[in-house]
Amino acid sequence: MDTELVVRAQKGDREAFALVAVSIGHRLHAVAHRILRDLDLAEDATQQALLSIWRDLPRLRDPARFDAWSYRLLVRACYAEGRSRRRWAPSLRLLPSDESAADEGLGSVFDRDQLERGFRRLSIDHRAVVVMRHYLGMAPDEIAEALGVPAGTVRSRLHHAMRGLRAALEADARPTAREVAG
C-alpha cells in the first residue's frame, strides 16, 4: 500500500481514501468470503471493515503497517457478521455426499464438502489464521502482528484448525441428516 496515500487518508483526505479502498477492497473481500463462506456476509463485512478503516485510520501509529492493521479490522468485521448470522440463520441440512467421490483426490467433491463442514465448525478466529496462512501466505509472526495476538497463539490456533480440517477429511462417515451447518 502506498504509504503516502495512507497518510493523506489519515488526515481526512477522502479522495486518498477512495484510492486506498479501491486498492484493498478486492483483497479484503476475498479474505472475508473465505472466512465467512457466505457472499452476502462477506460483502457486509468488507463494507464494515472499510468504514472502520476510514474511521480509525488517524489512530494507526505506523502507516507502514497499514496492511496488517487492515486485516485486523476485517477479521473483527467478520467476527461481528458471523455473530449476527448465528442469531437468525436457519439450520441448513447438508445433503450426503457421493461416497464414490472419496477417491477423486485433491479438489474432489468429497474433499470440498468435508472441508466445508470442518471449516464451518471452526471459530472465526481459527478460520482467520487458516485463511491468512494458507490463502494469503502470511507467516505466523505476520499474522500475530495483524491480529494483535502472540505468535504462539497463532501457531496454536493454526495447529488446532488444521487438525480439525484433517479430521474432517479423514472422517469415515458422510454427513447425516442430523448434522446442520450455518
Partner: peptide, 14 residues
C-alpha cells in the same frame, strides 16, 4: 495442499 487448493476457489472481486 488440499486446504490451499480449496481456498483458491472463491470470490475475488468486490
Amino acid at each position: 495442499r488440499i486446504v490451499r487448493s480449496w481456498l483458491e476457489d472463491g470470490v475475488d472481486v468486490l
